[in-house]
Write a protein that binds this DNA or RNA. Structure first.
Lengths: 153, 153
DNA sequence: CACAACTATATTGTGCACAACTCAATAGCG
DNA sequence: CGCTATTGAGTTGTGCACAATATAGTTGTG
């Protein structure tokens, strides 16, 4: 890698780490488009569905946001699209009318079986073993934790 | 981690790897907003500037796109904003009128010095050593390469 | 009870990403 | 030379992300 001519060689590092991270996310998202074709889900919608499938109970918008680190500005329109698609219902919590509870419809629940092969297919596409995936997960999780604490300083 | 109750436990893995990757990219992007405040650059704009700073010659839109894996639909409006900000110029290549050559202005070149501390600050925020960063970079690069070849199949 | 502080969601505006498409310019070929 | 195929950039439309703001509902306090 040629960095010899740069006035500020340290800037090359940003292209070397931050760019691959950025590119990897877009590559994964792109792969999901193919894998999720037929379900009509986008990648962020799939992540929301994963959280709902893992929950026994309906979840509020804020609760989904905490799990996925997304705010209402992103989730509200996304959830409306899932509602239009007939995969979720959105009902005001009778006990606290500020809250909107998101619950799965029959179709939404049924979709889980249809995508059950996706993680396996993606694992193959990424060309890494389960152990490598778990190690990578840990590094990325650490990174997010560090950035979260750094942001508040 | 409780996955015992799931009908399809393999779906938990997508939340365990793909979600951290997705969250890490957004956390890094968010950190850059703070670090780049004052320059007026967004994270994708900063990446474009990094490529221009590392180039001796003006680059075409396609050439920038290959380096950053972005298409003209993303780059054209982004480059127009950089042009409006006075950081780059966009001129048709006299030798091939289809091509638009992107070159740095004096202001654009001067900005390099102003952001030269950013990689160091980000490294601190991420809480990883240079060696860890390079190892992570290699894993992510491998991942992108695998996904690229998988996509075409 | 009145009312200020707080909470949960929704809305608005900006900026990516990317697929699909258009259009102008160029290259290649008979 | 004339015609077709290709290439490079731009446009359009959809769907995130997220900051900033608005609004309705709730809670705590005097």
């Amino acid at each position: 890698m040629d960095v010899s001519g740069r006035t500020y060689p340290q800037l090359a590092l940003d292209l070397q780490l931050c760019f691959p991270l950025y590119a990897a996310t877009r590559a994964v998202t792109k792969r999901y488009v193919t894998l999720l074709k037929g379900t009509g889900l986008t990648y962020p919608q799939y992540l929301v569905m994963l959280v709902l499938w893992e929950s026994e109970e309906p979840r509020s918008v804020t609760s989904l946001g905490h799990r996925l680190r997304l705010d209402s500005g992103t989730l509200t329109p996304l959830l409306k699209r899932l509602e239009t698609a007939g995969l979720v219902r959105r009902d005001r919590d009778p006990g606290d009318e500020r809250r909107v509870l998101v619950s799965l419809t029959g179709d939404g629940r049924a979709l889980e079986e249809q995508v059950s092969g996706v993680p396996q297919q993606l694992g193959t596409s990424m060309g890494i073993t389960r152990d490598e995936a778990l190690a990578l997960r840990d590094q990325l999780t650490d990174l997010v934790d560090h950035l979260d604490t750094a942001e508040s300083s």
